[in-house]
Write a protein that binds this DNA or RNA. Structure first.
Length: 263
DNA sequence: ACACATGTTCAGCG
DNA sequence: CCGCTGAACATGTG
């Protein structure tokens, strides 16, 4: 099954896009009318055509293409968006939402069966910090968890609270921190808040390293076989504890009884 | 055949 | 009124 990329996958995609495309200029840009776009196609083309791509980075769950005139193109893949290289000898990619042609001959396409992908010229700055931002500290967690009565997993998935964490990594983070996903955010004690704070960065950074190592060059798909609990094929976690699963926020949630429930 | 992945939005509930 | 929960969206895959 093709699962959706989350923060670590997107981080690797961004690095790989930068490696292939930085310094190349955008020679052609086609946008389907099915694409959800914050400006007109004409405005977008005027802003980006002939511009040199400086780099691609990840912000939350969005990819950001930075051009030499400081224009930024944000692409959010949502649930089903996919990026592929369109090779000259292959069949053209069917019904792409976006098709970038670069001066080195590389053609990047974005497709989406649900047409839910969003394309944003010069996205606005978000209030919520990125999960890997240096502004997220144990005291940030302490203050913001105290203000919320939500279940901790719902809060981790809330992009208005913290950006970039998806369903699979939320489970991995809470397993690492030893906190039940059903815990009330404001009831988590200080020592566990510190554990959560470090687990977020530790889990996400470790995943980036593993994906880079095992799938260098990828711009699509995902890797999940290293996951400790969020894995439908596992019966037990690496310590041998039975993995339970149930629904939370309409998403499957995997956890063990070792994760303490604070209510 | 059919349950299951996934993110965001928004109706509805308390 | 506000914060929170969970259904709905669509379809390829095992």
């Amino acid at each position: 099954m093709e699962l959706m990329p989350e923060l670590p996958d997107l981080e690797v995609f961004a690095a790989n896009l930068t490696r292939k495309l930085s310094g190349k200029s955008l020679s052609d840009l086609k946008i389907s009318e099915r694409t959800s776009l914050n400006v007109s196609v004409g405005t977008l083309q005027k802003a980006l055509l002939k511009q040199k791509l400086t780099r691609v980075y990840r912000e939350g769950k969005e990819l950001r293409f930075v051009f030499s005139n400081d224009a930024i193109l944000g692409i959010h893949l949502m649930l089903h968006g996919k990026m592929t290289w369109e090779n000259r000898d292959d069949q053209p990619v069917k019904n792409p939402l976006v098709r970038f042609s670069f001066s080195n001959g590389l053609v990047l396409t974005v497709t989406d069966i649900m047409n839910a992908v969003t394309v944003t010229l010069n996205p606005e700055k978000s209030e919520a910090p990125d999960a890997l931002s240096v502004t997220i500290t144990p005291s940030w967690w302490k203050k913001n968890l105290a203000a919320s009565g939500a279940q901790i997993k719902s809060l981790l998935l809330n992009q208005k609270f913290i950006r970039g964490i998806g369903n699979a990594y939320a489970d991995e983070i809470l397993w690492t921190a030893g906190i039940s996903p059903f815990s009330s955010a404001r009831e988590i004690p200080p020592d566990k808040v510190r554990k959560l704070s470090s687990a977020v960065k530790q889990v996400l950074r470790a995943a980036v390293r593993m994906i880079k190592k095992s799938a260098p060059g990828i711009i699509g798909g995902e890797l999940r076989d290293f996951m400790s609990v969020h894995n439908a094929h596992r019966e037990t976690d690496p310590k041998g504890h039975y993995i339970r699963n149930s629904a939370l926020g309409g998403r499957k949630t995997y956890y063990t009884d070792q994760q303490v429930l604070y209510k």
